[in-house]
């Protein structure tokens, strides 16, 4: 069984074709990257997986569960980081994690352990007790990523987890994704338009452009196949110069 199984997925917004017949599979334990320029359809893809949007055609399955007909079962095994997701401004990071933990876990003991872990993972230190509204963009994102992994999901869905962050925050998040997933055998599907980052974290990537998949493989395979020194070059060669 695949962690993610996408078959011929089409998503229309009126006349806009956000996804135009995409198919791919993600193995359990893999970190899978979607890369492509703005408007390529990455967010739309991830929102369908997160049960937020309904596909127009085709199917999407998470560990064999259909995202449309078994949406509430899917929600029990995923954790989703929305593009530019915020947290409740007037709660502290710690309170936010506690509330989320109480939703994800039924026993108080489990919730407490999860929160301790998430506080550690966020790397926010004492600032975790400050109100979210005093956080920088990078701190908010670290809190959110910590929340995602705190849930111990079978599939973590991350939409541009490092977009707009400075090197230090971005680095923290990249390391968190790499280390956590290897440790817990968590499957990750993430989007990015930073191709160098994807090369660093992802086991396999899909290049998406205008709702279509234009190439797929491990960063190494893609580079060899297209005789490029990095993924950015691969992308330019595949899509053609703008």
């Amino acid at each position: 069984m695949f962690a993610v199984d996408i078959q011929n997925l089409v998503k229309l917004f009126g006349s806009v074709k956000a996804l135009d017949g995409i198919s791919f599979q993600v193995e359990e334990g893999e970190v899978y990257g979607l890369i492509g320029p703005n408007g390529a359809g990455k967010t739309t893809m991830l929102r369908i997986l997160a049960t937020l949007l309904l596909p127009t055609k085709g199917s999407a399955k998470v560990f064999g569960l259909d995202v449309v007909s078994q949406a509430s079962e899917v929600r029990r095994i995923i954790a989703y980081l929305a593009e530019e997701a915020g947290a409740y401004r007037n709660l502290s990071g710690y309170e936010y994690l506690w509330i989320m933990a109480k939703i994800y876990f039924k026993s108080r003991q489990e919730a407490r352990e999860a929160v301790d872990l998430a506080v550690e993972a966020s790397g926010l230190g004492e600032r975790v007790h400050d109100k979210v509204k005093t956080y920088s963009k990078g701190m908010k994102r670290r809190l959110q990523v910590a929340r995602v992994f705190m849930a111990k999901p079978r599939l973590a869905i991350l939409d541009e987890p490092t977009a707009g962050l400075d090197v230090i925050h971005a680095n923290h998040i990249r390391r968190l994704v790499r280390d956590y997933t290897k440790e817990h055998n968590t499957t990750v599907i993430m989007s990015s338009h930073n191709m160098l980052e994807v090369e660093y974290i992802c086991d396999r990537v899909a290049l998406i452009d205008k709702g279509k998949m234009v190439a797929e493989g491990s960063p190494k395979e893609l580079k060899t196949m297209w005789e490029a020194s990095n993924l950015e070059e691969v992308f330019v060669k595949v899509v053609g110069v703008e």
């Binding site: 049960t51 929600r75 989703y80 929305a82 530019e84 997701a85 915020g86 947290a87 939703i103 994800y104």
Partner: peptide, 10 residues
Amino acid sequence: KTLETLLTLP
């Protein structure tokens, strides 16, 4: 943008 997160919770 917290509603989007809320709606993906179990």
